[in-house]
């Protein structure tokens, strides 16, 4: 389990870095697919098979295909060379990394997070799907219905925006 965690997290971080570094959007999309698949494996190590399956279906299946479709529709091969100042790029990277450092320092102060460090992730909840269904359709029934209305609204909006006259 430990080995699986380290291999999968290495793949996920490598793919995420390549998404950012690659200057061809199609390559970025395919690395994003690799990253999502590795994260789906990480869900399995956390004994959440339902979420892992949903990750594969929704992200690796639907969202990546949507991205690649739009990229092919717009015919974008390569980003043109940047007209930005190098200093601006440097400050952007520095600011992003600083945000990450702040998140890490905050985590080290969190008592609730550190109290779980001694526990192992091996062995999990039984009947994962059944438990999720029980909670979702009782405690979270109204949010579930609202999500379906949101998806309907998004679908109508996407169809409306893609019409000939905007």
């Amino acid at each position: 389990m430990q080995l699986a965690f380290y291999i999968l997290s290495f793949i996920a971080v490598f793919a995420a870095v390549m998404v950012v570094l690659s200057d061809r959007p199609i390559v970025s999309g395919l690395f994003l697919l690799l990253c999502f698949t590795a994260i789906s494996g990480l869900y399995i190590t956390l004994s959440a098979p339902f979420i892992a399956a949903m990750q594969l279906v929704v992200y690796s299946g639907a969202i990546i295909v949507l991205f690649l479709f739009v990229l092919m529709l717009l015919n974008q091969h390569r980003e043109s060379p940047s007209k930005r100042n190098r200093f601006v790029t440097f400050v952007s990277v520095l600011g992003g990394v600083l945000i990450g450092v702040f998140i890490y320092l905050t985590m080290l102060k969190s008592k609730i997070l550190l109290s779980y460090t001694k526990m192992s992730a091996v062995g999990g909840m039984k009947n994962n799907v059944e438990t999720i269904a029980g909670v979702m359709f009782k405690k979270y029934f109204i949010p579930f219905e609202l999500i379906s209305i949101l998806l309907l609204a998004a679908m109508v909006a996407a169809v409306f925006l893609s019409k000939k006259r905007v």
């Binding site: 389990m1 430990q2 965690f5 997290s9 996920a12 971080v13 995420a16 870095v17 998404v19 950012v20 990253c35 990480l42 190590t45 956390l46 790029t89 952007s92 990277v93 600011g95 992003g96 990394v97 945000i99 990450g100 998140i103 890490y104 985590m107 997070l113 550190l114 779980y116 460090t117 001694k118 526990m119 192992s120 992730a121």
Partner: peptide
């Protein structure tokens, strides 16, 4: 042994990569 902090650090690293990507 893989603890909660490892997953938290991995999540923070992925988030940071995302932020840097949005900026550059």
């Amino acid at each position: 042994m893989v603890g909660m902090l490892d997953y938290a650090i991995l999540s923070a690293v992925l988030f940071t990569v995302g932020v840097v990507g949005i900026l550059i």
